[in-house]
């Protein structure tokens, strides 16, 4: 469902993403790991067609990100870092706007909202404006926005950042529930999370993919915890 080929992007002299390639299929939960500034967010932004790559391309559900960005966005749910939203809108107004933009109308919209609002546990803040929400709720609203059209491919940039342990647990559960019939990419710094939800790990540093493996295989191969594996891989291969 996701086929990335030699994706590159630089900002001025800094090469953020340096020719990465990987594929992911239905049922994959791909954990995107890497130190800060490794190019994770940039890569995800390119997949969501927010940034245009300097070179290479990617196909999502058969739509090429360069040729058919709108087609890509239709089958993609994307939660950006920090879960941006329109602060002055209420949660209800915001989700309705996203439905408008995604052309989910009438009964379909009602069904989608009825499903997504309890799923992300945002019933209690449904009529509040987004600027009054705590970080955890904001992120869940962002998640609701990304899931509302039941996308086949989900790209979540640090979905559990800033949540409390209970909320983290809930989000991970949510991801696990959805995992079997979707293709999900999540980026994170929390390695336990990777062990809990991901069946693949891609470690990236300085814009390059260092390993593409499973969490289990990594710990078995190196004979230590994922934390140590991460440190070994990202600090030795300079």
């Amino acid at each position: 469902m996701i086929d990335v080929q030699q994706l590159r992007r630089s900002f001025g002299p800094v090469v953020a993403v340096d020719g990465i390639s990987f594929t992911a299929d239905k049922g994959d939960v791909l954990g995107f790991l890497g130190p800060n500034g490794a190019g994770k967010s940039t890569a995800m932004k390119m997949l969501a067609c927010f940034l245009t790559p300097d070179g290479g391309t990617a196909k999502i559900c058969g739509h090429d990100i360069l040729i058919d960005p709108v087609g890509v966005r239709q089958c993609l749910g994307y939660l950006a870092e920090n879960a941006p939203a329109y602060n002055e809108m209420t949660v209800a107004g915001f989700l309705n706007f996203v439905c408008d933009a995604r052309q989910i109308k009438g009964a379909k919209r009602r069904a989608a909202l009825d499903k997504i609002v309890p799923m992300c546990s945002i019933e209690s803040v449904y009529h509040q404006t987004i600027e009054t929400l705590s970080k955890g709720y904001r992120r869940r609203v962002g998640l609701a926005q990304a899931l509302i059209h039941d996308p086949q491919v989900l790209i979540l940039d640090e979905p559990t950042d800033g949540l409390d342990p209970n909320q983290k647990h809930e989000v991970r559960q949510l991801i696990n529930e959805m995992a079997k019939d979707k293709c999900i990419i999540i980026s994170t710094h929390i390695l336990e999370e990777v062990e809990q939800v991901c069946n693949r790990t891609v470690i990236i540093a300085r814009g390059k993919i260092l390993t593409d493996s499973t969490p289990k295989q990594l710990t078995d191969e190196h004979g230590c915890s994922l934390n140590e594996v991460f440190r070994k891989i990202t600090t030795t291969k300079k």
């Binding site: 969501a48 927010f50 709108v70 941006p84 933009a101």
Partner: peptide, 14 residues
């Protein structure tokens, strides 16, 4: 400034 442009332009809107 508040980053919502990233949301807006990753919806299926040109």
């Amino acid at each position: 400034k508040n980053g919502s442009i990233e949301l807006l332009l990753t919806l299926p809107i040109t």
